[in-house]
């Protein structure tokens, strides 16, 4: 699904990713863990195409294509989805409108028939229920006045509507209480499928109790320093990160 080779990236002249390698297979969920400043958000942003990041070396192959050559919207059409750590509020643009425009742009790109308003609304109502979002929010402005939990649920709801092949969940657990976390994780788990991969970026092991990863990576100093199964997350929770660096150096 996704292969990252020797990825180097800079932000404002400072090198953050320093030769990162990663391989994510179809249907797999990979957790990326690491301390603050390790480069987790940079990785999410580079993969989704946010401006301000300069890739100086390496490449990313996504479904056989050069991901880094694509604009953010092309990535979306090709099935990449970023669930934002901090979803932005967009007053004046309503949720339903944005989703319909986004979904139909993708369908058009894929040579599929665009959905009409009726088909779209019935599909969207159904998906909203899976993350316990009231359908009334569809006519509200994107994220405007949403609580932290609503914003994150909205991200997962959008993911359900856009049906990506590769989803990046950037610190989806941040700012969530335990009930909201359970709802969000439940939504994500419903979207697990053999042809959909996910990269779950998180600080804490807690999220991984609800979204069980196939593989856990430790991202430190701009590289993947250690890779293991889900039990690695438990070890990190009790021992912290410093030992990983020590082990990698030895």
């Amino acid at each position: 699904m996704l292969t990252i080779e020797n990825l180097h990236a800079r932000v404002e002249g400072k090198e953050i990713l320093k030769g990162l390698n990663l391989e994510i297979g179809s249907g797999e969920i990979h957790a990326i863990m690491g301390p603050n400043g390790a480069g987790k958000s940079t990785l999410s942003n580079v993969l989704s195409g946010r401006g301000g990041y300069e890739v100086t070396q390496g490449r990313v192959i996504y479904q056989g294509k050069d991901l880094l050559a694509m604009s953010p919207e092309e990535r979306a059409w090709e099935g990449v989805f970023l669930a934002f750590q901090y979803p932005v509020e967009i007053p004046g643009v309503n949720n339903a409108y944005l989703l319909k425009a986004g979904l139909n742009a993708k369908r058009k790109y894929l040579g599929l028939q665009e959905l009409d308003a009726m088909e779209f609304m019935s599909m969207v109502r159904e998906k909203a229920a899976t993350v316990e979002l009231d359908a009334a929010f569809l006519s509200r402005s994107v994220n405007e006045g949403f609580s932290g939990g609503e914003k994150k649920r909205n991200e997962i709801f959008q993911m359900a509507v856009l049906e990506p092949s590769f989803a990046i969940l950037d610190e989806t657990d941040s700012g969530l209480d335990i009930d909201a976390l359970r709802v969000v994780a439940g939504g994500v788990n419903q979207l697990r499928s053999p042809d959909r991969s996910m990269m779950v970026v998180t600080h804490y092991q807690r999220l991984l109790d609800y979204i069980e990863p196939d593989v856990v990576h430790v991202l430190m100093d701009g590289q993947i320093l250690k890779t293991g199964d889900k039990s690695l997350a438990k070890v990190l929770e009790s021992r912290g990160y410093d030992w990983v660096r020590a082990e990698a150096r030895s």
């Binding site: 195409g49 604009s71 979306a76 934002f84 004046g92 643009v93 402005s141």
Partner: peptide
């Protein structure tokens, strides 16, 4: 940030610009 958010959902840059401008006047 808003432009990138809209693009990440599949709107082209010019559509995203247009939409944000319309949202501004729509108020």
């Amino acid at each position: 940030q808003q432009l990138f958010y809209l693009q990440s959902r599949g709107l082209s840059e010019s559509e995203a610009r247009q939409l944000l401008t319309l949202a501004f006047v729509g108020e």
